[in-house]
């Protein structure tokens, strides 16, 4: 284990040297488009300067720290979760998110539906390997709206990592935000007994008999 850790350290140093030219420190809030990718994470489409249409100034600075991982799962039937399933921000505010990954695996904090003229594919994206964190900044548009926030690793959204970013008064809850709104397709928590059908038939027959007795008089 020690050897492998040494190897990892060595590799990280090498990597850092190789990519020094491409790297921008995550804390440096320069207006910057595109993907900043490094050995164990990424910040994509960060934007701390350019105002969305309809904003004449930054209305507020809003900073959030979101912890993610299996221990933040909200319900027994969920595998993963985020410490903030709902984030409220002011229109035209500059939002800085710090994603803290409490797991040993990769997680993401990804917003969709932002204006495509500022955010390619309409998304802002933080990604952190296990045990690391990433910080990124973006500016939200003026319109009240609920934006989808999720982790897009296969099955992470489905198993708990689905949240919403509410700008101003919002535009109504999204489905299946854990702790906020119901799933559109809910698992069927029927009693797990082989007698289920038998009991159903008995209830049916008893009701039929009673109904007949009542109507005959």
């Amino acid at each position: 284990m020690n050897l492998s850790r040494c190897l990892a350290c060595l590799l990280m140093t090498l990597t850092a040297q190789a990519w020094a030219a491409d790297k921008q420190p995550a804390a440096d809030h320069h207006s910057h488009h595109g993907m900043q990718l490094d050995a164990d994470g990424a910040v994509m489409n960060a934007n701390s300067k350019q105002l969305p249409h309809g904003c004449d100034r930054i209305s507020a600075e809003q900073d959030f720290t979101v912890h993610v991982g299996q221990k933040h799962a909200q319900d027994p039937g969920m595998a993963f979760g985020m410490s903030m399933q709902e984030i409220h921000v002011k229109p035209c505010s500059r939002v800085t998110i710090t994603l803290v990954n409490d797991d040993a695996i990769r997680h993401q904090w990804m917003v969709h539906g932002l204006p495509k003229y500022l955010y390619p594919a309409g998304m802002f994206h933080l990604e952190a390997s296990g045990g690391t964190e990433r910080t990124g900044t973006f500016i939200v548009p003026p319109e009240p709206r609920n934006y989808l926030v999720h982790c897009d690793i296969a099955q992470h959204m489905e198993k708990g990592m689905r949240a919403q970013l509410v700008v101003g008064a919002g535009s109504g809850d999204l489905w299946a935000v854990n702790g906020v709104s119901d799933p559109f397709v809910r698992s069927s928590y029927f009693p797990q007994t082989p007698w289920l059908w038998f009991i159903s038939v008995i209830i049916l027959l008893v009701c039929a008999f009673v109904a007949r007795r009542l109507t005959i008089r």
Partner: peptide
Amino acid sequence: LEVAELNGATPLSL
């Protein structure tokens, strides 16, 4: 290596 699920369930659709 990670473990990925393909063609799995979702609470949003059938």
